[in-house]
Structures are given as C-alpha cells and as structure tokens.
Simulated scan of single mutants.
Amino acid sequence: MTLIFAHRGYSALYPENTMLAFKEAEKAGAEGIELDVQLSKDGEVVVIHDETVDRTTNGKGYVKDLTYAELKRLNAGFRMKMNLKKEPIPSLREVLKWLTGNSLICNIELKNSIFPYQGMEEKVIELIREYRLTERIIISSFNHYSIVNCYRRAPEIETAPLMGQVVYMPWIYAESIRAKGIHPKYKTLKDEVVKKSEESGVAVRPYTVNKEKDMVHFIKLGCSGLITDDPVRALRVRKQIDKETKY
C-alpha cells in the first residue's frame, strides 16, 4: 500500500509546519507527516521550512539569528485568514512528544544545505532516541553528506536522500549510502525508476504530489509513499483505486 505523508502537515488547509497542521493530518487519516528542521540561535531544533521567518510568520530575520524564545513569540499561522488563533513555531521536541501518543510515521527533513547547522544531526538523533521513535522516523535531506553522517551515527534510523534532479540508477546510489528510501521530485521520476527501486527494496516516496492524476499514477505504480500537501485528496484517490482493484 502507498502510504500518505502530509507535507509540512495538512498544509493545503492549515499553516505549514505547525502543530495544528500535524494534528489535522492525523485526523484526516494520513499515515505520516513530513516536517523541516533548523537550529535557533541558542541551539534548539525548531520546525520551520525557510531559512528566514519572513514568509511563514509575522516576523523577519534568519532562524539562526533568533533565539528559541524569540521564535516562539512569532505567529506561524497569521497568513491563513481562516486561522484566527496564534500558531507558534514548534520545537522538534514538542512534535516528537506528541508522536508518542499516536502511530504516525514522521519524515524529518534536515534543512542544512544553505547553512550547515553544526551539530544538528546529533541533536535530532538524540531527540529521536530519547522519545524511542527510531522505528517510526525517516531522516531526509538534500545534503547527502548529512544523510551519510546520520546513518553512521544512528544506523537504526531510516534515511532517504531528497533528489531534485534526475539521478542515474538511484536505487544503486541509495544502497551505496545505506539509505532505505529515496524522495525524488515527482516531475523527474520515471516509471522504470519506481519499479527498479521498489524491486530492489528501496522505498520511493515522491514529493510534492498534489494533482489527482499524478496521485493515481504513482499509487498504481506501487510507490511506497506519497508526500502531498493534501492528504484528504490522496486518501480519497487511494480508496477509489483500492475499490476498482477489488472489482
């Protein structure tokens, strides 16, 4: 079965990378969530996508230049007009603590391609182990050096490199860096790559699949997972395909 991962939570309807978006993804029936992490000025692992807070909050500046207390004061939900309540930027600790009360899989993307965030891998791994969630976490990044570093430090935690461009025989590449999955940009993903990777035991979870026709295509191809802004649409499509397959 193709598992549905809510990209930055249920971000089609709720403020991305907030506890509200994660909780709504769980309520919708998604099997997993995807989120992004960076480090605050004082070294807290925080959940936010951009290197600056400008787009997603009512603040300005780089995440790395703001303390955790300063980041917490910002409203990450102010751009969603239907969202009247303040939504703070969560810490990874907060999200992992919440995950202990459900069965969701969590894909943690390390945002360390622009700023290297010294020690981020260790901090993330330490938190995952503290909450005993090693079996339910996938660590991904566009920084593949970081992916290898994570595997070396914690071989029990699954890793999956993010791929924005076409990679030749990515299932071989994944095996060479000990990754159990690949997360390619859906527009670059060829059918043969899905089949060969999945046959080789390498999970394929394309991002960010939001159109119904693309969802149908990748679910029918047998991808291990789909990363989407709209888990409700993806779940409806998967249910319809299941129904058609049975008859």
Rank of each mutant, 00 (worst) to 15 (best):
L104D: 08
K213T: 10
F5S: 07
I172Y: 11
Q38E: 11
N107V: 01
L84K: 15
Q240K: 15
R73S: 15
K72L: 10
V167Q: 12
G119W: 01
C106L: 06
P184H: 07
S176N: 11
P206S: 10
L221Q: 14
M19F: 00
V237C: 14
V193G: 01
K220G: 11
E16M: 05
V166M: 05
C106T: 11
P161T: 05
R152P: 00
V148N: 00
V166P: 02
G164R: 13
K111V: 00
G32N: 06
K41R: 15
E212R: 15
D242C: 06
S11N: 08
G29H: 09
T56D: 00
D191H: 04
L84M: 13
K111S: 10
S11Y: 12
K239H: 13
R233M: 14
I4S: 10
E121W: 11
Y62G: 05
L35N: 01
Q165I: 08
E244K: 10
I172S: 11
Y10D: 15
L71S: 11
D54G: 01
K220Y: 08
A160R: 04
E121A: 04
P90T: 06
S40N: 07
A160F: 08
S200P: 06
Y10H: 14
M19W: 02
E94W: 07
A69H: 12
L35H: 01
K41G: 05
R153C: 02
G164A: 12
Y145L: 09
T208S: 09
V46W: 11
I139L: 05
Q38D: 03
I139D: 03
D42L: 00
V193R: 00
A179Y: 05
M163H: 03
L96Y: 03
M80K: 14
S197K: 06
N58Y: 04
G164Q: 12
V47Y: 07
V204G: 11
I157F: 00
A69W: 06
G59Q: 02
I128L: 07
M80V: 12
K86L: 11
D214H: 14
Y14F: 15
S200K: 12
E212Y: 14
M169W: 07
V202C: 08
K220N: 15
S11D: 13
